[in-house]
Amino acid sequence: MQETPFCLRIGHLLPYSMSDSNTTEFTNPSTFILQGIPGLEASHVWISIPFCTMYIIAILGNFTILFTVKMERSLHGAMYYFVCILAVTDLVLCTSTLPKMLEIFWFNSREIDFSACLTQMYFIHCFTVIESGIFVAMALDRYVAICDPLRHSTILTNPLVAKISLAVVLRGGIVVLPYPFLVRQWPYCTTNIIPQPYCVHMALVKLACADTRFSSYYGLFVLFCVMGLDGIFITVSYTQILRAIFSLPTKDARLKTFETCGSHLFVILAFYIPSLFISLMYRFAQNVPLHFHVLISNVYILMSPMLNPIVYGVRTKQIRDRLLRLFTQRGA
């Protein structure tokens, strides 16, 4: 019987059928078996092509953003420091999942050590929370830049940016820290098969032979009190930003000001809206095949790392101009 599925990216359970699991009883396995895309094992090599392409784009794009901001002194400001932290977060997030996923797709290497599985789980959830926090920090930066532009440089000073960034990173690390400790203490029986290409918290909770209600409730706490509050703060910030934009006297001024935060707004929508859509689909679209759930969740976890550098590289004028100058000088 298929279990109720939830959103992978925000740490909820993916669907799977226990009838497909190994029924051998054991306790505390030394390894787990990652199933990849259940039902599409014969197509793993073909599925790996778009995933590998997205990974390459994410790696090249985010390293380009980091290099450009480092080389251009005019980009040494709050917004671009946050963009750099976002780039590092995306690099860690996609690198924590894609190499093992490609091992499964290309070499059928499905085993993952218990400790490695916990480490991968921690990095996925930790840097997802960090990315959400960075979006909040970027929303704050845009709010100050548009609603109080004359004081932007005096409010968002480098020391304050460093403190905000440290707080965001520490929050992500501390909030997710209980996950591996909770998972490690449980006994496991019946199966060690995880029906997806990498480890996430609730998938391991489902395999445990113990009372896991506290862990499930804690996962809901992280979802609503961390990700939910982030979304509320971003919504309030952009409501004020849009009010400030529409109060400008001329159409040209409104368009020019909107362009300064348009790329950030697009990235935020690309992060939160698909997450909401996938969560609702997992809760209510019970007849959707398992492999479709897993497949789109894997695409989503790569979407932000791939889109963020493209959006900021193309839509942000300062970064775009610096890249053009860099390639023009090398071409000459």
Score class of each variant (00 low, 15 high):
89 T>E: 12
188 Y>L: 13
49 I>L: 11
63 F>C: 15
81 Y>E: 12
183 V>R: 14
99 P>D: 04
176 V>M: 09
142 R>W: 00
169 V>L: 13
64 T>L: 15
144 V>M: 04
191 T>K: 06
93 L>K: 12
151 R>V: 07
144 V>L: 01
172 G>N: 08
149 P>E: 02
129 V>Y: 06
156 L>Q: 02
175 V>F: 03
184 R>H: 15
54 M>I: 14
145 A>D: 03
47 I>T: 02
121 M>V: 05
77 G>E: 13
189 C>A: 15
100 K>L: 04
145 A>W: 01
114 F>E: 03
174 I>Y: 01
82 F>S: 04
62 N>P: 06
138 M>R: 05
54 M>K: 07
176 V>Q: 09
144 V>F: 05
94 C>E: 10
117 C>T: 06
160 L>A: 05
95 T>N: 11
73 R>S: 12
174 I>W: 00
88 V>F: 10
51 F>M: 14
77 G>H: 13
155 I>A: 01
152 H>P: 07
86 L>T: 08
131 E>M: 11
69 V>C: 03
52 C>Q: 11
100 K>V: 02
130 I>C: 06
179 Y>W: 11
148 D>F: 02
107 F>N: 07
79 M>L: 13
48 S>T: 04
158 N>Y: 14
43 S>T: 00
174 I>K: 00
144 V>T: 05
77 G>R: 11
153 S>D: 15
172 G>I: 07
183 V>E: 15
80 Y>I: 09
172 G>Y: 07
80 Y>C: 10
92 V>T: 06
106 W>R: 01
104 I>R: 00
127 F>Q: 03
160 L>G: 09
102 L>E: 03
73 R>I: 08
126 C>D: 07
165 S>N: 01
149 P>S: 00
147 C>Q: 00
51 F>L: 14
183 V>A: 15
69 V>M: 04
93 L>E: 13
183 V>L: 14
127 F>W: 08
127 F>N: 08
182 L>Q: 14
113 D>R: 12
103 E>G: 12
67 F>T: 14
76 H>C: 03
149 P>K: 03
87 A>L: 01
128 T>C: 13
110 R>H: 10
94 C>R: 08
169 V>Y: 08
148 D>I: 03
131 E>D: 11
70 K>A: 14
111 E>L: 09
107 F>M: 07
109 S>I: 04
133 G>K: 08
86 L>S: 13
138 M>Y: 01
92 V>P: 01
126 C>Q: 11
156 L>Y: 00
102 L>M: 10
161 V>A: 08
103 E>Q: 14
95 T>G: 05
158 N>L: 12
184 R>G: 11
